[in-house]
């Protein structure tokens, strides 16, 4: 389980003014973003046209994490705060703890797709406080830490408690997109909107306490990853204890159809000035550009979201080519996208 340091929940609970929630919502944005590079790296490591169902499931989760990030930014804007996307602190160091995670907690890296990665990292990130057990599953319960879901629910409670019905933020900063269901990504003008939006984040990630499905009937991230781990689709099953079981169609997976990425590749591991180094630089330039674009999008230019979608394709194409490229000097490995925050390149060689 991704264990959120309880101090963040306490901070939420102790807040008396909306301003005090701004840094906590900023943390939420950072946390939502921080899951995207690990999920994308795993997805890009799958060879083109192979392990299609696995790719599809990860893709569906990544897209929702992007939406969660947008929702968190919308809430922050709605409360009158200002999201900060384009600074070096925004990007986590991989491998490392995710934002708000406790020390000695879950360490998340950028690795190739594997069942182990799904089980040990991705399911941990998305694990609810009390996962529903559909087959054998042991839960090591703990009271010392909080889950992402609990953090959001605390935020939700606090907003209900201290926010006015009409939220004070500039309405023109709300970001929506034709690529998302308006029932899921909607402008947050009122306290009620904020409460609903938080429910969407929590339920898409964790499901509800009684069902692996969110309110729209979609399987929550945790259980979608569990599908990948078990290699079986989760389906309704009236005979099973919780009404669902992993007795659906197989999700075929061939580990040979995954590129052997060197874990947590950094640009500094590549020979300076090499073709591989240049391509990684290109990747990180796109990533930087994307973060800059998102910053502008969330700070008064919501139409800019369309442009960032274009950069995501640039990023993806470069990443997939990297994943297929042998790692110089590391036999048997290929290059993973490094998702490093760079400002404009400082190596001007003439």
């Amino acid at each position: 389980m991704l264990k959120i340091d309880s101090k963040f929940i306490q901070k939420v609970q102790q807040s008396e003014e909306l301003e005090e929630l701004y840094p906590l919502l900023q943390n939420a944005i950072e946390l939502e973003h921080s899951t995207i590079p690990p999920y994308l790296t795993a997805m890009f490591s799958i060879k083109p046209g192979k392990n299609l169902e696995d790719r599809k499931i990860i893709h569906s989760i990544v897209i929702e994490e992007m939406m969660h990030m947008t929702i968190a930014a919308n809430i922050l804007n709605a409360l009158g705060g200002q999201p900060y996307i384009s600074n070096s602190d925004f990007v986590p160091e991989y491998p490392g703890p995710l934002p708000m995670g406790i020390g000695n907690g879950l360490i998340v890296g950028l690795e190739k797709y594997s069942k182990a990665c799904v089980k040990n990292v991705f399911m941990e990130i998305e694990e609810p406080e009390n996962p529903l057990v559909f087959k054998s599953f042991s839960l090591a319960a703990t009271q010392d830490f909080s889950t992402i879901g609990q953090f959001y629910l605390a935020l939700q409670q606090k907003i209900e408690e201290i926010a006015p019905i009409e939220l004070p933020g500039d309405k023109s900063k709300q970001v929506t997109s034709a690529f998302f269901d308006p029932a899921l990504l909607f402008p947050i003008y009122t306290r009620h909107d904020a409460v609903n939006a938080i429910n969407i984040i929590v339920e898409q990630g964790e499901g509800t306490s009684i069902s692996p499905l969110d309110q729209d009937g979609e399987i929550a991230h945790y259980y979608r990853f569990e599908e990948l781990f078990k290699g079986k689709k989760l389906i309704k099953d009236d005979t099973a204890p919780n009404g669902f079981s992993f007795s659906g169609p197989d999700i075929p997976f061939n580990p040979d159809d995954v590129y052997p990425l060197f874990p947590n590749t950094k640009i500094a591991m590549l020979p300076t000035g090499s073709e591989e180094w240049n391509r990684m630089k290109q990747f990180n330039t796109s990533y930087f550009s994307l973060l800059q674009g998102l910053h502008k999008t969330f700070n008064g230019d919501p139409a800019g979201l369309d442009n960032t979608i274009g950069i995501m394709y640039d990023l993806k194409l470069t990443a997939e080519k990297l994943c297929a490229t042998p790692f110089p000097g590391k036999e048997g490995y290929t290059i993973g996208p490094s998702f490093e925050y760079i400002t404009v390149p400082s190596e001007i060689a003439v």
Binding site: S286, S289, L290, N307, I311, D314, P345, I348
Partner: peptide, 11 residues
Amino acid sequence: QLVVGAEGRPT
């Protein structure tokens, strides 16, 4: 100073 391409939108 540096001469670079677009930022916040594709190249």
